[in-house]
Structure formats: C-alpha cells, structure tokens
Design a protein around this nucleic acid. Structure first.
Length: 587
RNA sequence: GCCCCCGUAGCUCAAAUGGAUAGAGCACCGGACUUCUAAUCCGACGGUUGCAGGUUCGAAUCCUGCCGGGGGUACCA
C-alpha cells in the first residue's frame, strides 16, 4: 500500500541527499509512526549520519540525523499529498491527510473483497510436506501442530502469491505396524473398526505394546510375522493393505473436521525400493561405504567435507541386514518430489528433533550432485508437551487424543453459545460451536513462535476469553451484526468530510497493514506475524465499536462508518481464512 | 564433549528483523449492559529483557563467556 507515494518521496530524498553529498542508503526503511494517532510513514537518517561519521567527518550522529531530517522535511513540505511533515529525533515523519488515506484503504478493501491482502503471483512453486501420521497408531494432540502449522503456512503462502503443493507423508510400514497386525491376527481376527476408527486403531496398538511387554515370549511370533511381511506373504500383505485403509480413512475424517486438505499423499512404502536404489548409487559413487554384513552402509559426511569439527557426523543410510531406514526413504522422497513437481522450494514441516537428520540427508544429496538439494528447507517447530514437560507418546499412553480435544472444545463452545445466544437455531449453534471450538484449538499453535514449546492443558485450551481465536471471531460477528441491521446495500464510496475519531484512524491503519503482514508471514513461514496483526486489528475494531456509533450516526458519518465496518469485517475474514480458522457471522 | 532451541511483568506470550516511550492476555483490584452482540470495554497494578563483558550514534534483538531449562548426537522415527 502507498507504494507510489513511497517511491516518489524516495526519489526526492535521493536527489536531495546526493546534492548535499550525504551518503544515500541502498533502500529506505519505511515504518509506521508510533504514538501518533494519525496515519503516516516515517524514515530515519541515522544510517546516513553514521556513515558520514565513519568517513571522517566530525559529526554527532543523533544531531546530524536530526539535521538531515529537518532539511528533508523542509523539502517535502511542498508535496501536497501529505497533510503534515515533521522532523523528530532523526526521523522524517510524513502524515497523510486522514480523509484521503482512509478513503483509499476502505475503497481498496471493498473493491478487492476476498482478495484483499493477497499478493501478486510470484511464479514460484513450493511444496509443503506436513502432517506425517503413522497408520495403526493414534492421532493425538502432539501430531496436531504439524497439521495446523503446515496448513496455515500453505494458506498464507497461497494468499501471498505462491503456487503451493500440499503433501502428506504417512508412515505405513515398520515394526509398529507388524506389532499391530500380530495383535489383530491373534486376538481380534475378523473384527471391523467401529465408528471411532482412529481411536480403535490406537487402542489396539497400545494393547499390542502392553501384551508384548508383559509376555516377552510373544516376541518370536512378532519376528516371524515380520519375516512373512518381508517375503510379501499374500495374507499379511492383504491384511496390511486393508487395515492401513482403516487408518487412512480415519485420518481423512480428522482432516475433514479440521478443514485441512492435501494435493498429494506420499507413504513410506512408496519410496522404500527407490531409497535402496539410491543407496546403491551412493555406494557406486564412492559416497557411501558398504560395510555389510558386519556394519551398516554409511556416509561419513564430515570426512567427505573435510570438516575438523563434528557437524554433519555420520549418516547411516541402510541397515546391515539391508533393510531401509527412515533416512533411506527420505533420500528417495526428496528426489521424487522434485521429479513429480517442478519445485522451486521443498518445505518440510517436521519437529525440531529431526533437524540434524534433514541436514544430513540434504547434504548427502548435495554431495551426490543433486543441485535441488539446496532448495530443501526444514520448517522446524517445537513439540506440544503436557504440563511438567511430559512428551506425548503413544507407547507411554501419555496422550490427549485429537478426537477428545475436538469434542470437548466443541461441547464447551456449544455451552457458551447456548448461554449467549439461546435464540439461534440449533444447527446454527452447532456451526458456531465448530468454528469457535476449532479456532480455539488452532490458535495456540499459530500465535507463538515455531521455536517455542506449547504446553497443552485443558484449561487453556478451552478458555475462549482474551487473546485467542474467539476474540477475533467475535469482532467479525460484531461487524457483521451492524451490517445486518443496516438498511440497504453498503453505501457508495465517499471521502469522510469530518474529523475522524482516533479509533477510526487506528482501525484503518490496522487494516492497511494486513497485506504486508501476509508477506512477512509467508517469507518467514511464521503465521505468528499474521495472528499478531489480526489480533491488533480485532482490538482496534472493538475500540472503534465502543467509541464510534454507526447506525445511530448522521448520514455522511454513518455512510463512511458503514463502509469502514464492511472493510474491517472483510479484512478479518480474509485473515482468519488464511490461518485456517472460520469466521462465523453470529456467535 | 560437540551441535540446536529457549530464558522479557506472578503466569502464558509479543515486540514491524538494530531504532522513538518494551506491549498484550491470564491472574488480582476497581468500574461499564434500557444504547450497533458484555465471548466485550475502561482504569489500576505489574520490568535492571537470566548474568557479565563487547560492537554501535543506538541492543530484548548482533558477538564472546558464563548460569539455568529442553532437545539432538552411526543401523528408532
């Protein structure tokens, strides 16, 4: 927003600085003016002054910056697009005429509608791999962060102008699957999953683990079953496929409830063979050492790179018995992704514990000559723990099941709707409860930095007050409510001919910042930037709501405010949508 | 040992990427529903940004060293 104004002023400043033989910065960093209650933009001259000082001139930097700012201010004062120009403490502050500025913001939101905040197409294709659930296991709250963060990042990237491929990568092979199958064949043969499929799959897995712990003599049976699987025994393979489908259907159901979609599903089993082939290739190229049968196949990364200190260490790419490891699969999957799609960047939303793993895999691929390896990016995030720093683990039984959390959140939200808005039709209440309950679940995973641990506790998860999604949703509802009561359509565009209330100025400013924050969030892969901006916007709307009557105002004021309310509602809705959170019209 | 995160108000977190006066929520205290939805708002309280140096005109932010917490570190995923 205001790119043309910025460019014009920059041109003037550049000429002025050159003329005065003051160092010209490479780029001007425009910032909003704090504490103003008036809209504008500012730029500082500390860098120019500091550069002068460094080049030998006898200058006091803050004083000199102030001097330059004052000279610049005198120069710009002639420009009529600014209502006020001032130099304060080394900053050049340019204020926009509030009436022109506010009209421009409101008009562009209403003209662009659901596209307001979106970026120009970038012509770049990114793949985001997120949510890597294991079949035959539970889906718990610990798994939620990758799913929610990944989904939000995809939505933000798309809105920002990137071409995004959403990839899911599920684990459908491994010891846990064999253990599950063993338990099923021995104790549950013929059973069909109940409604709550994912819970049942998880329960059977936990049961298998428990049985094996209590009766070590069963280990042999599991080993035998693993052998049958390795030989692709038709009965075992058929059962594996059938039961895997149960898990996948259960996951699909959860994704649907969470409103998360994927374009491409990858599975461990799909890349096992290619992975082994790539290991063979690495051996032939002399990158990997084949020490079988005594030892595994490994890549000594630090040695290959001639590093003194331990950095990449040693990557085992194949077990000594020739079976594949996680890293074997990831070598092949990375390649498959670039082959299938012509990617500019391949992003992995995976928890921080796997940082070294990815560095190793990608460095190995780079050494092997795959130049796209440098375009792989690990979007790492911290875990979701339970109070007392307890990690959620299926084996330990220290989990909060996703189904339970969703059900509780929706039930709690429904209670509140019943209380606040008893006259709503019951299906409306259900819809509201879903949007509010899910929003409350998603928000804590998005409003803090990815590098921070989230501690899950029921009280916080089910608290709908304060800094949380329902707060933002509520602002949307209030805006909608005013528009509902408005007679006729949204008024035609107009320039406000009255002195705007500070609350209106603030609200307009918050709206105008959203497009930049979308870009920031996309660039850093941090939904946090957007949640912050949206929360501030909602807060400004509530202040406006209190300070500025809309429906009872006289007409020129009323018309402009109605347009402002419509713009605020649209912007909040666009922001929530980019986070994967619903924007209900009533609650 | 080596590597990666985290440390900001009693608690949970921000801080526009090195800039003007470090901000919110929760909790606690005091107020506001006959008025566009009180899931809201207003006020009060609350800070040596873990510690010590350094770089800089300017540091919560960058560098070094400590302290405290978490995680990773060759055939788990």
């Amino acid at each position: 927003m205001f790119k043309s104004e910025k460019r014009r002023v920059e041109k003037i400043l550049r000429n002025f600085l050159e003329q005065k033989e003051i160092p010209v910065p490479e780029s001007f960093q425009w910032k909003p003016i704090p504490f103003s209650g008036e809209w504008g933009m500012s730029v500082s001259f500390f860098k120019a002054a500091a550069q002068e000082a460094r080049s030998g001139k006898q200058v006091n930097v803050p004083e000199r910056a102030g001097e330059i700012a004052r000279m610049a201010a005198d120069l710009i004062s002639g420009e009529d697009e600014f209502s006020r120009v001032e130099a304060v403490q080394g900053y050049l502050n340019l204020y926009f005429a509030p009436d022109q500025f506010s009209r421009k913001v409101v008009d562009s939101v209403l003209a662009e509608g659901a596209d307001f905040g979106s970026g120009e197409p970038k012509g770049e294709r990114l793949m985001v791999e997120f949510s890597q659930p294991n079949t035959h296991k539970a889906f718990h709250v610990g798994h939620l962060r990758s799913a929610i963060l990944g989904d939000a990042v995809c939505r933000i990237l798309e809105f920002a102008g990137y071409d995004v491929v959403r990839a899911n990568y599920y684990g459908d092979i491994g010891l846990h699957v064999i253990q599950w199958l063993w338990n099923y064949m021995k104790f549950h043969r013929g059973e069909e999953p109940p409604q709550d499929t994912t819970r049942w799959m998880g329960d059977l897995y936990a049961e298998a683990v428990k049985r094996l712990e209590e009766n070590p003599e069963y280990e042999q049976e599991v080993r035998d079953l693993y052998a049958r699987w390795d030989e692709r025994d038709p009965e075992v393979v058929a059962l594996w496929k059938k039961t895997r489908e149960w898990s996948l259907k259960g996951f699909e159901n959860l994704y649907q409830i969470l409103d998360i979609e994927f374009d491409r599903y990858y599975a461990n089993s799909m890349v096992e063979e290619q992975g082994k082939e790539m290991v063979q290739e690495l051996i032939e190229k002399g990158i990997a050492e084949d020490l079988r049968p005594e030892d595994a196949v490994l890549v000594r990364l630090d040695d290959l790179l001639g590093l003194e200190n331990e950095k990449y260490r040693v990557l085992v790419v194949l077990r000594s018995d020739g079976t594949a490891l996680y890293q074997t699969l990831d070598l092949a999957l990375a390649k498959l992704k670039f082959e299938e799609y012509d990617l500019d960047t391949s992003i992995y939303v995976v928890d921080v514990r796997q940082k070294l793993h990815f560095q190793q895999v990608w460095k190995t691929l780079e050494i092997a000559g795959y130049d796209w390896a440098k375009d792989c990016e690990h979007l790492s995030y911290e875990l979701v723990n339970l109070p007392g720093n307890v990690v959620m683990a299926s084996r330990e039984g220290t989990v909060v099941l996703l189904e339970d959390l969703i059900r509780e959140a929706r039930a709690r939200a429904l209670e509140v709707v019943e209380e606040k808005n008893p006259s709503l039709a019951s299906d409306e209440k259900e819809k509201v409860a879903k949007a509010v309950g899910l929003g409350a679940i998603k928000y804590p995973m998005l409003d803090r930095d990815n590098t921070r641990i989230v501690t899950f506790d029921w009280d916080t998860a089910l608290d709908f007050n304060g800094q949380a999604a329902p707060y933002i949703q509520y602002a949307h509802v209030r805006a909608n409510s005013i528009l509902e009561k408005m007679e006729g359509p949204v008024p035609e565009a107009l320039t406000p001919d009255y002195t705007l209330n500070p609350a209106e100025i603030e609200l307009i400013e918050r709206i105008s910042r959203i497009p930049d924050e979308i870009q920031n969030a996309a660039r850093d892969r941090k939904p946090l930037h957007l949640t912050n901006a949206l929360y501030d916007l909602a807060r400004s709307f509530n202040a406006f709501y209190r300070e500025c009557p809309v429906l009872s105002a006289e007409d020129p004021v009323k018309s402009f405010r109605l347009r402002l309310v419509a713009a605020a509602k649209q912007t909040i809705a666009n922001g929530l949508t980019s986070l994967g959170i619903g924007a209900p019209s009533v609650m």
